[in-house]
Design a protein around this nucleic acid. Structure first.
Length: 773
RNA sequence: GGAUCCGUAGCUCAGUUGGUAGAGCGUUGCGUUUACAUCGCAAAUGUCAGAGGUUCGAUCCCUCUCGGAUCCACCA
């Protein structure tokens, strides 16, 4: 054995041995409860970051259960990550001076598909580098036909049940990325903007968005506000930048009399709250900002033919203004309007230090425009109620427990979920409109209707038998498909079982993965995607399968830099997990992430800490070297090559029951009993998801009890060839290797292979230790 | 406005049935011809944010205060 442990030289070979040995695949067996985890599928097109390395927690559970002999499945996968991937690809295109609009839909999709395929392998190999014992024979992708099939079916079922509906309302629209989002993708930031006080007929109103004022359709006051009460119901003519407008005063209890002047202008087309008011009071939805984020005055400049507007005095001035504003971006137009308001004497005052929260695109930072658009929505309330009930009845439990409350809060507050995205990269929504019916709808003949299928284009319209059918161009929100991940994946795998290698396996083979492993045991992921993913899997999973998708949710925290700062490229404090693996070995990184980390809490990760764990791996290595040197045969032979010699191994006295009964030496007795305590302690910790405690116990015992104390104290006995002393040491150390294997799989496996023992099995499938009796 | 988390050794953090405080890294001193300098031995430093309360006893439970962070919410 070399003087120091070199992870670089052994890790790859060991992983290959595990993978080709088939040890990652579950051995289904009757009578044994299975243990299963689905890897949260990383984006197919991106490299892993340290956060992904936290999945080590899953590997710990998986390896532990595998060693316990449970039929254990850890399923890998990749996420097409719809919008995000398209975003990355568009950046890629931009570098080449192109945009997505240079391609037709099919070409763009194909190109992104190719782009993703070339990148996908990188991410998967990185998972291997981290030592993750994933069953690659079941590797799956969110766009695999079987997954897509399930997603279609789910959509159709929800549609048939009335839980999916189509509606035109204000969506969170990013005018730069050209798509709408659900509420969760809107990132609110605190910002300072001027608050304009504008003369509005007899009133003054305060607004941060003067540009929407052209399409105000009402004024709202608090019905309890004595100042304005008498105006409620009145219709007033108000002078604006484009001439007079008629507006009715409506009551709205949400208006805060203390804010601004206590009067709120109502723009149903561009404010979610106003939109709701509009529905209540039957106000028209009249947009003035288009989907590119530009001002649209065509309604003023080109009035609908046939409708004659009353002549407006000063129309020329107004026309010139409208032309000036038309087609320009909001940010450009706002100052122009402010000037014109001042010129007309309508600007009362400007409060420059107005701080408010404003919605931005989570990806590109553009201000989100609420714009009226037809989208597919999921009626969340009934699904959320089922999910909440599952939490309350403990069908699903959370570690740490406090996230139960967070989850329930989310489930209470969700609005209906917009699942339409104006992207190409994704699963296209299987819904068609009948063109003929649409025409009839225009004349008010019939309501619009959609034909939803399980993916196939319908042959004809069930209403009018028309064959001119047009598919919705939108794709599903990525989270709609990943929200079905647990059952979609298990239904897609497992029916191609390898040849059974024992009778039990044959018996269990009849059951496919879904029947066998669903519901999964644990869902382990970062707490930051609790609402996006965990809650949605609960809602969709429970509703569509009648069972919770997983029994326990374990949430880990964010990995931050050594000073506890959030890692970001701009700060330059990003730790690249693969670089750490190259430098210190996967075991060191894994241990560093688990050691001293509380579940659900963010952690600070430093290179020093990783180095410290690398030192621990080396310590283990040297304990092994010491044992090897102390073994009788090793003493006689001066040839280091003999250490791998099986004949020699056979001569080593191995610890067994007989020897245990005959133990006399107090030092030996004590270390054995301490080892037994360690075994039960570590086992208990893992069962209770207290991985940090388990890791610390093993670390402390191996280094400070076994190496520092027992080994030093008994050095003379080992050197003099005391067979019992050596056998005890050997036994204790093998036990440590087994306990530590889930945490540091490579170094333990490597050492395991070098030490004599009764079995020839690799450590990965050797049994979890129990107490020595 | 609501919710959550954190404030423990110089730094980063563990500490779940409440019983005289722990780890990693760092620091100091000593040591080392064969397990390991990616080391060993020894050592130092803590009013466990503050104040009350419950208790025989609180870092741990309750209340409040002060500081730091995060998430949510239709203040135009």
């Amino acid at each position: 054995m070399d003087k120091a442990y070199n992870p670089q030289t052994v890790e790859e070979a060991i992983y290959k041995m595990w993978e080709s040995g088939g040890y990652f695949s579950p051995r289904k067996a009757r009578g044994k409860p299975p243990f299963s985890i689905l890897l949260p599928p990383p984006n197919a097109n991106a490299d892993l970051h340290v956060g992904h390395a936290m999945y080590v927690v899953e590997d710990i559970m998986i390896r532990y259960h595998r060693m316990k002999g449970d039929p254990t499945l850890w399923m890998p996968g990749a996420d097409h990550a719809g919008f995000e991937t398209q975003y990355v690809y568009e950046k890629h295109l931009a570098k080449a001076g192109k945009s997505r609009f240079d391609f037709d839909r099919e070409t763009l999709y194909k190109d992104i598909w190719a782009f993703v395929q070339t990148n996908r392998g990188t991410m998967e190999n990185q998972l291997r580098r981290l030592g993750f014992s994933l069953d690659w024979t079941r590797n799956i992708f969110t766009l695999d036909p079987k997954i897509v099939e399930t997603v279609y079916q789910s959509f159709k079922q929800l549609f048939d049940e009335g839980l999916v509906y189509r509606d035109k309302r204000l969506v969170n629209y990013c005018t730069k990325d050209g798509t709408g989002f659900s509420d969760l993708e809107v990132l609110y930031v605190q910002r300072n903007d001027p608050l304009y006080y504008i003369k509005y007929g007899p009133f003054t109103i305060a607004t941060a968005r003067p540009e929407t004022k052209f399409r105000d359709t009402a004024l709202a006051v608090n019905p309890k506000d004595k100042r304005y009460k008498q105006y409620i119901g009145q219709t007033l003519e108000i002078m604006g930048l484009l001439g007079p407008i008629k507006m009715t005063v409506i009551p709205d209890p949400h208006v805060d009399p203390k804010f601004g002047t206590g009067i709120m202008k109502v723009t149903p087309a561009h404010d979610p709250h106003d939109f709701e008011l509009g529905r209540q009071f039957n106000l028209p939805v009249t947009p003035i900002i288009d989907f590119r984020g530009k001002m649209d005055f065509s309604w003023f400049l080109n009035p609908i033919p046939g409708i004659k507007a009353a002549p407006i005095p000063g129309i020329e001035k107004y026309r010139a203004r409208a032309e000036k504003y038309h087609g320009k971006k909001v940010a450009v137009v706002r100052p122009l309007m402010v000037e014109d308001l001042k010129a007309d004497g309508l600007m009362v005052k400007i409060d420059e230090a107005y701080s408010h929260r404003i919605g931005t695109c989570w990806k590109c930072g553009t201000v989100i425009e609420p714009l009226p658009l037809e989208q597919w929505y999921i009626k969340v309330a009934p699904l959320a109620a089922e999910a909440k009930k599952a939490i309350e009845t403990k069908k699903v439990t959370f570690v740490p427990k406090r996230f139960e409350k967070t989850a329930k809060q989310w489930l209470t507050n969700f609005h209906d979920w917009n699942i339409s995205r104006q992207n190409v990269w994704g699963i296209r929504i299987p819904a068609w409109r009948c063109v003929d019916c649409d025409k009839r709808q225009e004349t008010g003949d019939r309501k619009e209707h959609w034909i939803v299928t399980e993916g196939n284009k319908p042959e004809k319209c069930p209403a009018c038998a028309g064959t001119d059918l047009v598919q919705d161009t939108d794709t599903f929100d990525t989270w709609f498909s990943s929200g079905q991940w647990p059952f979609a994946t298990l239904r897609a795998t497992g029916d191609k079982e390898k040849t059974a290698d024992n009778k039990e396996q044959t018996a269990a083979k009849e059951k496919n993965d879904y029947e066998y492993f669903y519901p999964t045991s644990v869902m382990e992921t970062g707490y930051d995607i609790l609402p996006w993913w965990v809650c949605r899997m609960l809602m969709l999973g429970i509703h569509l399968t009648g069972q919770v998708p997983f029994q326990t949710v374990y949430l880990h925290g964010l990995v931050r830099d050594a000073q506890g700062q959030k890692m970001s490229k701009s700060k330059g404090n990003v730790i690249n997990p693969l670089k750490m693996v190259d430098q210190y070995g996967a075991d060191a990184l894994r241990m560093a992430l688990v050691f001293g980390t509380g579940a659900g809490n963010d952690q600070a990760l430093s290179e020093d800490k990783i180095r410290g764990m690398r030192n621990f791996a080396n310590k283990l290595w040297n304990i092994a070297r010491f044992i090897e040197m102390s073994e009788p045969a090793g003493k006689d032979s001066g040839n280091p090559e003999d250490s791998r010699n099986q004949t020699k191994n056979a001569e080593i006295p191995l610890y067994d029951e007989t020897m245990h009964k005959e133990l006399k030496n107090s030092s030996d007795k004590r270390i054995i009993s301490e080892t037994n305590m360690l075994v039960s302690g570590v086992t208990k910790d893992i069962e209770r998801y207290r991985f940090s405690d388990a890791a610390q116990k093993i670390y402390d015992f191996a280094w400070h009890t076994l190496a520092d104390v027992h080994l030093e104290k008994n050095k003379e006995r080992f050197k003099s060839g005391d067979a019992q002393a050596i056998a005890v040491l050997h036994h204790v150390f093998l036990t440590i290797l087994r306990l530590l294997h889930p945490f540091m799989p490579f170094v333990t496996e490597e050492i395991w292979g070098k030490l004599p023992k009764k079995t020839t099995d690799p450590l990965i499938i050797s049994p979890w230790p129990g107490n020595t009796k």
